[in-house]
């Protein structure tokens, strides 16, 4: 028959065990809280240099309309009269008439600056991220129009439904502290 340890009773064992458990729990909770405070968030974003303007961003996003919108890098824009991103190919006239506009939702506003320069401004609320203008601008112009996921509209799904279908793997997770991959050096608010 084993001898009892007179200095370490069952009561002591339970008491110490409870203390250790509480300390471990406290440490775990503290660690998780600290990690939440210091850990950097990652968000989905489109690399405009990989994007092939397939148009899937408009139809594949779980948001309706899509969280993907067109941005305009004004410092790359030629402010052209014949804008490949605004006008349909071979328009009957270079005007703001609906039949000449490439955008299916008329989300691009053409503003006259001075002869022969025009500024093109994206209305984010109307844009559905279809990339027609981006393809037109890239094919015929300087490529100043490009797509980006607008973080305030994105649900940041665990698996982005557009990234899953993107044929050029242009969508990836980027650091939340630098959530955009904007072409050029600046854009304007719409």
């Amino acid at each position: 028959m084993a001898e009892k340890n007179p200095k370490y009773s069952r009561r002591d064992f339970l008491r110490n065990g409870t203390r250790i458990s509480l300390l471990i729990t406290l440490g775990t909770v503290g660690g998780i809280s600290a990690r939440h405070l210091t850990h950097e968030k990652y968000v989905w974003q489109i690399d405009p240099f990989k994007c092939t303007q397939c148009g899937r961003c408009a139809t594949s996003c779980v948001m309706s309309p899509s969280a993907v919108k067109c941005l305009h890098a004004y410092d790359l824009c030629g402010y052209c009269d014949l804008c490949g991103g605004y006008l349909k190919s071979d328009p009957n006239k270079r005007s703001t008439a609906a039949e000449n506009q490439l955008c299916p939702t008329a989300a691009i506003q053409r503003k006259y600056i001075e002869e022969p320069y025009f500024e093109y401004v994206i209305n984010e609320d109307l844009c559905i991220g279809c990339a027609k203008c981006v393809k037109g601008c890239t094919s015929f112009g300087n490529g100043s129009l490009h797509l980006q996921i607008i973080q305030s509209r994105c649900l940041n799904c665990n698996e982005c439904s557009i990234a899953r279908l993107c044929p050029s793997d242009a969508i990836s997770r980027v650091k939340g502290s630098k959530p955009y991959m904007v072409k050029g050096s600046f854009t304007k608010e719409s």
């Binding site: 397939c54 139809t59 299916p104 393809k135 899953r164 279908l165």
Partner: peptide, 19 residues
């Protein structure tokens, strides 16, 4: 149906093939 390259027709695709 969601496999790459086997997607339904895209209503927003802009084709530059004619040019």
């Amino acid at each position: 149906t969601s496999k790459r390259g086997e997607l339904p027709p895209n209503p927003y695709e802009l084709s530059t093939d004619p040019f």
